[in-house]
Design a protein around this nucleic acid. Structure first.
Lengths: 210, 210
DNA sequence: ATACATAATGGACGCACGTCCATTAGTGAC
DNA sequence: GTCACTAATGGACGTGCGTCCATTATGTAT
């Protein structure tokens, strides 16, 4: 058996590296000039590869786009996962850590916010893309819901189900709204303000904990 | 002086009617197949006019796009304005009327949500479009802020400025988030739940009024 | 009636797009 | 060193785009 398939940087034949290069170039261009203007010629120029590579590795430009958003979402999830590993079990801290991570520069920056919006904008007509865009699914939602369930039980809250649902759904909606506002108003956007507002929302539902 | 310039439907020469027809066709197509696939050929076919009309009336396809989003936003604002005229002066009722209007079928439906997202997605690279997309400007924000100012004064709240800012900003962010969620999950989206969640957020900040 | 102004037409044009494939270059096996 | 295999190249191809303009149709003023 030959040595591992991982691409050493010196090799001129490195399909995985080239695939990743094409995906990164695509994401960069989308964040800079938008999806409609992101052409095959610009992508290959940015990635520094030849014209046939997209067809060779992805089959078509559309499939490259799908691979790009998939990779983008996987990176996003990976960052969240890493945050959740490091944080303690206290549900209040877990929720706030999630929010802080979502609002931090690693996840909420101009590039990523633009990419999110660009994909959202074209996702509806295309089910292949829509699959990757849900807010309601995914780790973040589950972790948050679990934390709120714990708190609702501690409080012996009546109608705890609705409380948990409202808290989870509302927090995610607030985070979504913050992303939109970040893009509309990047320079005056305040991560501190955003975090405080979300905290105030949760504090209204769980006054004893936040 | 001849009769009014308003287009009677029988006339074959009706520039204003044709302009509006092109704009409506453009918005329809954007909501159905997205901006990248909305071509000149499809627009004129949908509008039932000839190929040269876009160049004649708007100068180019790009300018038609800008005119379309402008018209879309004006319609949106007009609906809000009409709601605000009918509602009483009580600040609590004004805020809730605004929220209810924003979540109502007239403003939040599949077509409009898709159009919003499509334009948001391409707006960042294009300042001409970005101008029309802000959440933080506009009537809705001002009306909401005024209402919260009134309430904060009644409560003699300390740090009322921050309270008002957080309430305004947070409510708008929640509404934005609801729009995103509506699109991601149209069939299971509940306007009632959305309204209740936003109300709970505001109630946390103004417990004596909501 | 006639002339004038302009709304509207639709085909032609050049260009840039995404796709594809015959060819070349690089890599590991024998 | 040779062979076999596959990654990578880059130009050619056809398609469909947006733009434009010479022409026609329509309504208005004289």
């Amino acid at each position: 058996m030959a040595q591992a398939k991982t691409d050493d940087t010196s090799s001129k034949r490195a399909p995985e590296r080239h695939k990743r290069g094409l995906i990164d170039a695509t994401l960069d261009l989308i964040s800079e000039i938008g999806i409609p203007d992101t052409t095959v010629s610009l992508i290959i120029e940015r990635a520094g590869v030849s014209r046939g590579m997209i067809h060779l590795h992805f089959g078509s430009k559309d499939k490259l786009l799908i691979a790009a958003i998939r990779a983008f979402c996987e990176d996003y999830d990976a960052v969240l996962e890493r945050v959740l590993e490091d944080v303690e079990q206290n549900p209040v801290e877990r929720v706030m850590a999630l929010i802080r991570a979502d609002l931090g520069e690693a996840l909420l920056n101009e590039r990523s916010a633009r990419i999110w919006h660009a994909f959202r904008g074209v996702a509806n007509p295309s089910p292949d893309l829509k699959r990757y865009c849900g807010t309601r699914d995914g780790r973040a939602r589950d972790v948050m819901k679990d934390a709120f369930v714990t708190l609702a039980r501690q409080d012996h809250a009546q109608d705890g189900d609705m409380l948990v649902r409202d808290a989870t759904f509302g927090t995610l909606a607030l985070l979504e709204g913050m992303y939109v506002d970040y893009l509309s108003n990047t320079q005056s956007f305040s991560r501190r303000d955003a975090e405080r507002i979300i905290r105030r929302f949760i504090a209204g539902l769980f006054p004893d904990h936040f």
